[in-house]
C-alpha cells in the first residue's frame, strides 16, 4: 500500500515537538534553574539549616543599611534617569527622520562601550584631580576639590549615564504611538502649551513611564560594576555586598540570602508591573 506520508512527516518532523526544544530546555535547567535552586538552597542551609540568614533582614543593621542604601540610590537614579530620558525621548520623537537616525546612534552608542570603561571614564572626570575639579579650581570658583566620587553622588552619575538608553527606548515607543494632532487639538480647544502637555501628552505616555521606571529600577537594583568602581568600596550596594560576602568573607549563607531576596524583590516588581501594563509590549514584542 503506497500511502503518502502525512504532511507533518514530510520534513522529517515525526519527532514529538518537545524533543525539538529539549536541548534548549536542558541547557536552561542545567545552567540556570539548577544554580538558582542551589543558591536558594544554600541560603536556607548554611551555616546551619533554618531561617537564620533571613532573620538578619530584621536583626542585622549592616544588612538593612545595604538594602536602604541600595533602594535610595536606585530611587534617585530612576527619578533622574526618567526625567532626563523623557526629555531625550521627546526630542527624539519630534525630530525629523534624518536627525532621528543620528540621535538614535548617539543614544545607543554607549551601550556598545564596556560598562567598565565608562565607569573609569567617570573616575577621570569626577576624581579630586579630575576634569571638573581642576576646571573649577582653575576658574577660582572653589578652593577645595568637591567630593564627586567614592560616594552616592558618583554612583548615581555613573548609573544614570548607563540607564538612560533603557529609559529612552520605552518612552520613545509610547510617544511614537501618540497621534501628532492631539496636542495641537488640545491647544486649539483652549489649552496652553503646558496644559496640553499635562492633560493630553503626559497621560498618554503613562505606560512608557511605568515601563521605563520599573526597567531602570530593576536594572539598578542588581548593579555591580559601576557602584563598585564609583563607590570606591565605601558605599555598598547589594550586588557588591553579595560579592563581598561570598568571595571575600566566604559567608555563603548570607550572600545567597541577599541574592535570593533580591531575586524575589525583582520578580514581585515585574509581577506588579504586569498588573498595570501589558508586559510583552514593554519588552518589545508587538
Amino acid at each position: 500500500m503506497a500511502v503518502a506520508a502525512p504532511p507533518s512527516r514530510v520534513l522529517g518532523a515525526s519527532l514529538p515537538w518537545w524533543l525539538l526544544i529539549a536541548p534548549a530546555l536542558i541547557l536552561m535547567l542545567a545552567f540556570y534553574a539548577f544554580p538558582l535552586a542551589e543558591v536558594l538552597w544554600i541560603s536556607f542551609t548554611e551555616p546551619e539549616p533554618g531561617l537564620s540568614n533571613y532573620e538578619r533582614l530584621i536583626t542585622s543593621e549592616a544588612v538593612q543599611r545595604v538594602w536602604i542604601t541600595t533602594l535610595r540610590i536606585c530611587i534617585i537614579t530612576t527619578v533622574i534617569t526618567l526625567l532626563a530620558g523623557y526629555v531625550v525621548a521627546y526630542a527624539l520623537s519630534s525630530a525629523p527622520p534624518r536627525v532621528q537616525r543620528w540621535m538614535f546612534l548617539f543614544i545607543l552608542l554607549p551601550l556598545w562601550i564596556s560598562v567598565l570603561v565608562r565607569a573609569f571614564a567617570w573616575v577621570t572626570i569626577l576624581r579630586r584631580q579630575g576634569l571638573i575639579n581642576e576646571a573649577l579650581i582653575g576658574a577660582g570658583l572653589i578652593d577645595e576639590p568637591l567630593r564627586l566620587i567614592w560616594n552616592e553622588f558618583g554612583i548615581a552619575v555613573g548609573m544614570v549615564h548607563y540607564m538612560i538608553p533603557y529609559a529612552v527606548l520605552p518612552l520613545y515607543a509610547s510617544m511614537r504611538d501618540i497621534d501628532p494632532r492631539l496636542v495641537p487639538a488640545a491647544r486649539g480647544l483652549g489649552a496652553s502649551r503646558f496644559e496640553a502637555f499635562r492633560s493630553v501628552f503626559l497621560p498618554l505616555t503613562r505606560p512608557g513611564i511605568i515601563a521605563a521606571s520599573v526597567l531602570v529600577f530593576i536594572f539598578s537594583l542588581g548593579f555591580y560594576v559601576t557602584p563598585a568602581i564609583l563607590g570606591g568600596g565605601r558605599t555598598l550596594m547589594i550586588a557588591e555586598y553579595i560579592k563581598l560576602q561570598i568571595l571575600d568573607l566566604i559567608r555563603w549563607g548570607l550572600g545567597t540570602m541577599m541574592a535570593s531576596t533580591l531575586l524575589i524583590a525583582i520578580v514581585l516588581l515585574l509581577w506588579a508591573l504586569s498588573r498595570i501594563v501589558d508586559i510583552r509590549r514593554v519588552f518589545g514584542s508587538g
Binding site: D179, R181, P184, R187, G188, L189, A191, A196, P203, L204
Partner: peptide, 27 residues
C-alpha cells in the same frame, strides 16, 4: 491658537484616546 477661541475639527478627529466622550467634550 489657545487664545483665539476657535473650534476646530481635525482630519482624523484627534479625539483624546484616554478620555471618555464626555471628558473629551468637557475638555
Amino acid at each position: 491658537p489657545e487664545k483665539r477661541n476657535f473650534g476646530m475639527v481635525f482630519q482624523g478627529y484627534a479625539l483624546f484616546p484616554h478620555m471618555t466622550v464626555a471628558q473629551n467634550v468637557g475638555f
